[in-house]
Design a protein around this nucleic acid. Structure first.
Lengths: 213, 213
DNA sequence: GTCTATACGATGATAGAC
DNA sequence: GTCTATCATCGTATAGAC
């Protein structure tokens, strides 16, 4: 029997290993050799299946973020529809919940998702331009949707104000997401919290922030 | 005359170049060759003057953060003293202003500080453990001071609540700091704001967040 | 088609001779 | 202080085995 061949699905193994290592070591810090080593496949397998390290990054992000974005979009639409039926403007808190809850809940849905959440929490601040670009590409349409919905909820606020306050909200959320990585929790001496507890902590904060003054 | 010798201060030149490149390319992305090239000194000068790349990082951070932390500490003390004299508890907004205003203002104090602010905004989320560790080491005592002051301002809130809300605040602030880098501003199509405008935007948000419910 | 072994050229940090 | 050598490690390309 050979060393590590006959994988049920090589691509999947690579994606899983890459997701974990990107999250813990960063895009630059995770070498293809480390990734393929963890996945027990050959070094060249990445280039065969994905073409390049950059394309692998895109695949890692895409696999998780497309379903996540769809869920967030659907939740947002529900909030807007419900408000419309009542002839009212949507509530800021409901909009924020529709975006934040699926994000934090996602950690607990399937194995590996935890690492992914840490990773995207860091991506926006990643020093590597490649990572930031790919990430912004996926978050941008979601952010614009959020902006529109929030403008309906807070019509008295200027576009500029809503834009920046949503940025602050993203900052708080991303920070929470990457702080919840095992390594960082240890460095800061925090005990673990589940998605529900985290949501209950962050939601009043960001809602009050958005509605301030 | 030789190519690049006879620097007024080699160490200073290296620190400046490293600060800029760490901020724009990240710790891993900025090679010693790029740093010494930008500083017009020999490749080996870093190892001669600082010992290693890691020690250079510490020096870069230390140079700016020690005076910044002292200023923040002093501002915080002033707020607490002023409240004590009046026989009242300090106001949450004043505490947050004492921490945030010097941070954002710092960008405009001296050349190079702008890059530094971007850099520390990113450091907390840096995938490289080295960077995170050094950064946490410098921010931790400041955070604890903030926590104490905030507990005086909001005695009805639990320690856990104050801890997390301050984390959200840090998230919003850090995100703002690294978003204000020239590259990211371009990627997001935002126009530049000065420290005063930014402070006026973020302060109501984080204050309302801290006081929520 | 899928996967492995191996090699290539570039670039990384650092150390020793001067 | 500088110059140069060293040695590890990077992403990627290729040739061939199953």
């Amino acid at each position: 029997m050979s060393k590590g061949s006959n994988h049920p699905d090589t691509k999947q193994s690579i994606l899983d290993a890459a997701e974990f290592l990107f999250a813990t070591q960063g895009f630059r810090g995770a070498s293809l050799r480390a990734i393929t080593g963890k996945a027990s496949v050959n070094v060249a397998a990445v280039n065969y299946h994905f073409g390049s390290k950059k394309s692998l990054l895109k695949a890692v992000i895409k696999r998780r973020i497309l379903p996540l974005n769809q869920l967030r979009r659907q939740r947002l639409e529900e909030v807007r529809e419900r408000a419309k039926k009542k002839g009212r403007t949507p509530d800021a808190k409901d909009i924020l919940y529709a975006f934040i809850q699926p994000t934090l809940q996602f950690r607990e849905t399937e194995p590996g998702a935890k690492e992914f959440v840490t990773f995207i929490g860091r991506s926006f601040a990643d020093p590597d331009n490649t990572v930031r670009k790919v990430f912004i590409q996926f978050i941008k349409p979601m952010f614009q949707l959020l902006q529109e919905a929030m403008h309906e909820a807070l019509p008295q606020n200027t576009h500029n104000q809503i834009f920046w306050r949503l940025q602050f909200t993203m900052g708080a959320l991303f920070h929470t997401m990457h702080i919840c990585s095992d390594v960082t929790m240890e460095q800061l001496n925090i005990s673990a919290l589940d998605a529900e507890a985290l949501t209950e902590l962050i939601l009043p904060y960001v809602t009050a922030g958005m509605k301030a003054k």
